[in-house]
Simulated assay, not measured.
Amino acid sequence: MAKTAVSRFATIIRLIRFCVKICGTDVSNPNYRMWAWTYLITVTIFAYFGFTGYTVYRAVQERDFTTILLAIATVGSGAQGLVKLVCCVGNATLVRNIQLTYESMYREYEDRSRVYSKYLHQRINNFYYLVLGFVFLYTTTVIIMICFPLFELVVYNKKAMILHFLIPGIDHKSDTGYVIMFGIHSTFLFLGAFGNFGGDMYLFLFIINIPLLKDIFKEKFNELNELVVQPDKYKEMHAKLWDLLDWHQKYATILRGTKKIYTAVMFVELISTCFGILCTISCIFMKNWPTAPFYLLYCFIVLYTFCGLGTIVETTNEQFTNEIYSNCLWYELPVREQKLVILMLAKSQDERSLTAADMLPLSMTTALQLTKAIYSFSMMMITYLDYEI
């Protein structure tokens, strides 16, 4: 028996809650409160920053600038995890409200018609594809970053580190110290991957379903047009028009809430990802970090995925306007109802888009501009290294 869209959506929520529980941020729980594990994860993140700062301090003292680059290359991922934790926990009620809005939407439109059901399943499929892609990305990156140092240890007897931070009092060059550092690095990498992935899944859930609101809006307009041409269905037509106004307001509310939760996340995500890319490229040119290409690929995929989510919102905003302007038989409506359509059209032309702290628009155009800047930096590095050689 085929699963219903409601049951598939419930499975998605359970998957998200499983991931965020590992980091103590199950904000989907109506009774959620920060508890000991949440504080321990927060302390772990700050410990990572502290150990990285200590490593940089040691490297500056020893004038080892290569180690500085290695240490700070991955610090952006820690910053991303911290800001996602703070924003999701700080806006826990808003996150739950948006999630519950989508849940009620799936329950309400599951059995209305095959058209609505098709739209629901389509968005769930898109979410599954995106999540599976990121599961593969995170899993592959973590496995490679852990297994490659093991390979070097077994084959070449070389004590390579997973991450590049030191801990006071632990000698990573000794056998015992290396084992301890390897275990700590693996734990930090594992928690960082789960934390970032869990925070991303809420954003994926909210944004992937944004076009669903447009699809349902389109079908509602088709139903309105059928009523408009029937003079004896004025009451039904009037109720359907107000339903459309309410639906458009629901879209604006979800978009506004999503932006409030994630605007700081977007800013940190873009800045830290670009910073990590630049440092990683430098490490690749200097040939001192064997797994750097895999981390570089991870950073680029994250950059383009997040900017792609912003493009989805921009496109959906335009489609809402087009639906109102092109597909509505407004000329068949009474004058009073025409004014309501004009109001909705004016509002649709000023919808919010996702931005990075209201500084950069989140779109593929921004991603391409950042890539162009990164390319220019890479060319400069190549020229500089060739000059030094």
Score class of each variant (00 low, 15 high):
Asp386Thr: 14
Ser376Cys: 10
Glu388Met: 12
Leu360Gln: 05
Ala357Arg: 07
Ile389Tyr: 06
Leu360Trp: 07
Glu351Phe: 15
Asp350Gly: 09
Lys347Thr: 07
Trp330Arg: 02
Glu332Met: 04
Met380Val: 13
Lys339Leu: 14
Leu385Asn: 15
Thr383Asp: 06
Val341Asn: 08
Thr365Glu: 08
Ala356Glu: 04
Met344Asn: 14
Met380Glu: 06
Asp386Lys: 15
Asp358Glu: 08
Leu333Cys: 00
Ala367Val: 07
Met379Lys: 14
Glu351Thr: 15
Met380Ser: 13
Leu360Pro: 06
Leu368Val: 10
Met364Ile: 05
Leu368His: 09
Lys339Thr: 14
Ile389Glu: 11
Ile382Phe: 13
Ala373Cys: 04
Asp358Gly: 06
Ser376Gly: 10
Ala373Pro: 00
Ser376Ile: 04
Leu343Glu: 10
Asp358Val: 03
Ser376Tyr: 08
Val335Trp: 10
Phe377Gln: 09
Thr371Asn: 06
Val341Thr: 10
Ile382Asn: 11
Ala373Val: 04
Val335Cys: 06
Lys347Phe: 09
Ser348Leu: 07
Lys347Arg: 05
Ile389Thr: 12
Glu351Trp: 12
Thr371Lys: 01
Ser348Arg: 01
Lys339Gly: 11
Leu333Glu: 00
Thr365Arg: 09
Ala356Gln: 03
Ser363Gly: 11
Gln369Trp: 03
Ala367Cys: 09
